[in-house]
Design a binder for these strands. Sequence first.
DNA 1: GTTGAAATTAGTACGAA
DNA 2: TTCGTACTAATTTCAAC
Lengths: 214, 214
Amino acid sequence: MTEMSGGSSRGGGLAGRIGIGLQLDAVHMKILQVLRENGRISVAALAERVGISRASAYTRFEALRADGVIKRFTAEVDHVRAGLGITALVFVTVRQQMWKQFRAQLAQMPEVEYCAITTGQHDAMIQIRMPDVASVHTLVTERLAGIPAVKATETVFILDEVLKRPYVLPSDRTPRRHPPTPTPPPTETSTPIPLGKMRFVGAAEGRTDLRGDT
Amino acid sequence: MTEMSGGSSRGGGLAGRIGIGLQLDAVHMKILQVLRENGRISVAALAERVGISRASAYTRFEALRADGVIKRFTAEVDHVRAGLGITALVFVTVRQQMWKQFRAQLAQMPEVEYCAITTGQHDAMIQIRMPDVASVHTLVTERLAGIPAVKATETVFILDEVLKRPYVLPSDRTPRRHPPTPTPPPTETSTPIPLGKMRFVGAAEGRTDLRGDT
DNA sequence: GTTGAAATTAGTACGAA
DNA sequence: TTCGTACTAATTTCAAC
């Protein structure tokens, strides 16, 4: 092989996905689990770990990749060591009808590592990595705030990243049966607040154009 | 090779790191850049892309791994396809002097993919992946709220993950010189609020025991 | 740090169960 | 489908430059 990934992720972003494609069984899950822990494992070693033949491993491996279940393989870099020691979260309020522009601008900001559209007080949360605190300030005030689509921002710094797990699969979930009385979905209209400790935050009003048309 | 990663990440968490180790040059950066895009590329192909010999590529590759600059290789899985279609952020207020316990409890919750300690109104932000909305509710109310260290939570749902980049390295940054007049660091005492659009949120009062002693 | 050649391993393509 | 084997091509290692 020359390369095995990097060029075949179908579609554009992480957004909308249609069709179900592969039906994943326990073996698929086990493959994913191993691959999340060690993305560079050889298919032969993978087969051994999962308990299938090499031929099957190749078939399933390729199927998972082709089907988009595995989106890409990546190396996790220590950002501090790489020169980007400061991480911040910026919560952004986006002006209505300007989501497309907002997305377009974000695409041109390489320092943005992650962006998610959320319910709650703000509309989006972006995570940025910077060499120093001053750079965060500059980015937020001069570049983010300069985007017409951005109505307001709120910045918090990340003091420590406690955990970042690659193990998140249904099989990892704690075996914990749902309560007999099915919990009602947490909507704005019916949200019990048990223990007085919880608070779900719904979407802001008039959020109709959440998805861009890219 | 049989395996190339997965068992040698030194230390425990993502927290404190001592010593500088390798001094990264432009070639190292380029290697990291390629590896972040394609974690399964062969060292031979990597060498060609970076423009160095195979042997050099092997040496540098190993050095980056041994030194911890590359923390691990992982496969990015489409969570929706894998059965965890719901993503939520839970902002947690942690009771003072109970950080250690909080961390310990989190370690036992596999559905938590990411946890960061932040400045601002809340103390920590955790990202969870669940099969459905009801499970989020159950997790937050029955498990998270049940932790003594957790004083309060606030949950928001992620409607769409716009981008998740593996390209974040200093070399990716937009070449934009800092303003001649050095921007003052954004502390609570001296934070200019340009355009009335920005808002930095400092740490809550009395946050002295942010780091656990693990 | 680079090239080249040898040994090992990976990836593919068959049949057979 | 999955497995097992054989074949081909690539990668890794190790040598000398």
